[in-house]
Design a protein around this nucleic acid. Structure first.
Lengths: 108, 108
DNA sequence: TTATCATTTGGCAAAGTGACCAAATGTTAT
DNA sequence: ATAACATTTGGTCACTTTGCCAAATGATAA
């Protein structure tokens, strides 16, 4: 692995890392259709507002979402919708795993 | 977030988490064309064999790669090639970020 | 100004991750 | 059986992540 590759892959890993948390994935799904303020998002999550805020900050840091202020509220919106389509392949992995599990349980 | 969603998103996050490390991304790229043994892969990475082995184990646990033994060697192979295509969108995020950076530096 | 609302930030404890070394396992060759 | 090779596993340590609370910030309303 050259130093070039190291840099490239570390950057790529950083984006994936930002995605790799159930709460953050849920937040992204909420932002899929329209922007939302933190208060909206907090209602749906079983966690403190500050926790949600920090998750949003992680996604923003990674460049996945952006924010704008409107009065007292801050609205977040998805920057790269292709990410959500991308999860199709992740689902494929999960389905494959589920089938493999099933096959083990039923050894014909 | 319902309990259903929680489970679904945790599973999805687990796959993304397995991907979210530069060394593991590098290993996947090596496995893109053909299967490889641990010894092959260790040569290219600047890390202990045991470290590489553990990274491979993480990928295998997630169902992303599989392994087969052939004599003394163990060969790993990619199970879901679509994952590599998927990185196109991750690159899009990175490019967008790079442009945003550039724009900040050159405030016309 | 003061109060109030929406959000972020700092601090802390618990849990998880990543890397190395050394020891254990499994396989083939002598 | 013993030795040698390829890989995995267990242990340890430093570092990071996550989540909550409390305090700070920013903006509007009274």
């Amino acid at each position: 692995m050259t130093e070039q590759e190291q840099l490239r892959l570390t950057a790529r890993a950083a984006v994936l890392k930002a995605l790799a948390h159930p709460t953050r994935l849920w937040l992204l799904e909420q932002l899929q259709q329209q922007e939302h303020c933190v208060c909206d998002l907090t209602d749906g999550v079983n966690a403190d507002i500050s926790t949600v805020s920090k998750h949003l900050s992680v996604l923003k840091q990674a460049g996945i979402i952006s924010s704008r202020r409107d009065g007292k509220k801050i609205f977040y919106r998805l920057e790269t919708p292709c990410l959500l389509k991308m999860f199709g392949c992740v689902e494929a992995v999960l389905e494959k795993n589920a089938k493999a599990q099933a096959a083990l349980l039923k050894p014909s």
